[in-house]
């Protein structure tokens, strides 16, 4: 019980730090990648809360698909700015 609180405190604190950095970072791509790291930590939190179904779904969607959609949007607009 004590170990659970310690590890969940570490995971929660890291998540808060990553969220703050993602909101306040200057470059958009850094913000998107920090969001990807945040959702990987959320997977750890879901596994600790005994929710394996949700953890699998979040691992596939949060760190893979959503990040790639953000990156595609940034890529397609970057080239228009160059022209």
């Amino acid at each position: 019980m004590l170990w659970f609180d310690i590890i969940s405190g570490i995971v929660g604190g890291l998540m808060l730090i990553l969220a703050f950095l993602a909101i306040n970072s200057k470059k958009l791509i850094n913000s998107v990648l920090l969001l990807s790291g945040l959702s990987m930590l959320a997977v750890v939190a879901f596994v600790m809360l005994k929710a394996p179904d949700v953890a699998i779904t979040e691992a596939v969607i949060g760190s893979g698909l959503v990040t790639s959609l953000f990156v595609f949007t940034l890529l397609s607009t970057r080239k228009e700015a160059k022209k």
Partner: peptide, 27 residues
Amino acid sequence: GIFISTNTIKMLVSLNILEIGLNIFII
């Protein structure tokens, strides 16, 4: 983040952060 940022991509990132927090809370 949603209130403070003026960038649309930043607002969507903040919306995702909000969603993750809400999901963990519900579980």
